[in-house]
């Protein structure tokens, strides 16, 4: 367990050092909340389509999940930077289990992403009607979500041979997954093809679960069902990441 523990330590330490990067990651969701959220909140007079809450409140759990998702996915895929700049080689020549090492990195990154989610939530509480009791459980959901997408990022990075595809993957993965998660608008009103895509998106279940916990607005699944599906998907993604990383080489 030593390699796991030390990798968590490394990721958290690096996060605490890189303050400007952290600020950059937090500004983006705040802009969404303030401009997109408040703007539309005033335009949508009919709150019934959002389960009876104003749009800003409806959007808040979505922005929380989006923050955690963005941060964890970027951290996961940044394994490719580690490869480019040596740290990965360090790990690959060490006798420690590669599965354990990468799991440590994923959990460390997830802790970091959850902290960022918590920062966003604390701002959100000032402007939206958030159920305080739901905050801690929602952070738990955020952590599971982060494990899922850091793993996803690691799996992609393990297959990438260069930095060139990086921008394309970001464009291909990040925005579509956010739009297809119900973070910004209800899944219930999506056309069926879009709904089908939303249902295979792990982010959907995190958005649904945290929305129930934070605002009481339920979506298309009951809470326990969303949580169960999220946990299963996360476990699968973590396993795939561990296996992909084990097989990766420096070629």
């Amino acid at each position: 367990m030593r390699a796991f523990e030390i990798m968590v330590y490394r990721q958290v330490k690096r996060f605490l050092r890189a303050r400007s990067r952290v600020a950059g990651m937090i500004i983006n969701p705040l802009v969404w909340l303030a401009f997109f959220g408040i703007g539309w909140s005033n335009a949508f007079r009919d709150t019934s389509i959002f389960g009876g809450v104003d749009y800003l409140t409806y959007l808040s759990p979505g922005i929380f999940a989006m923050t955690v998702f963005n941060q964890s996915f970027v951290s996961g895929i940044s394994v490719i930077w580690d490869r480019e700049f040596g740290f990965l080689k360090e790990v690959l020549v060490a006798p420690a289990s590669r599965k354990e090492t990468i799991a440590g990195r994923i959990f460390g990154d997830s802790a970091v992403a959850t902290i960022q989610g918590a920062i966003i939530l604390s701002f959100t509480m000032l402007i939206a009607k958030i159920n305080i009791l739901g905050v801690i459980p929602a952070l738990g959901v955020g952590f599971v979500l982060a494990v899922a997408f850091s793993s996803f990022g690691v799996s992609i990075a393990a297959r990438m041979r260069s930095m060139e595809g990086f921008q394309m993957i970001m464009a291909l993965v990040m925005l579509p997954l956010i739009f297809l998660s119900g973070a910004i608008y209800p899944i219930a009103f999506m056309p069926s093809w879009m709904k089908a895509l939303a249902l295979i998106n792990p982010l959907t279940y995190a958005v649904e679960a945290s929305r129930v916990l934070l605002t009481g607005v339920s979506g298309i699944f009951p809470l326990h069902q969303s949580l169960l599906i999220l946990l299963i998907l996360t476990a699968v993604m973590l396993y795939i990441a561990m296996v992909s990383f084990e097989r990766s080489t420096v070629e």
Binding site: R2, E5, I6, Y9, R10, R17, E90, A94, A96, T101
Partner: peptide
């Protein structure tokens, strides 16, 4: 982004 000491600590941990 780590200090010299932390670099050593992480390496030691991996071993």
């Amino acid at each position: 982004d780590l200090t010299a000491y932390e670099n050593m600590l992480v390496h030691g941990g991996v071993y």
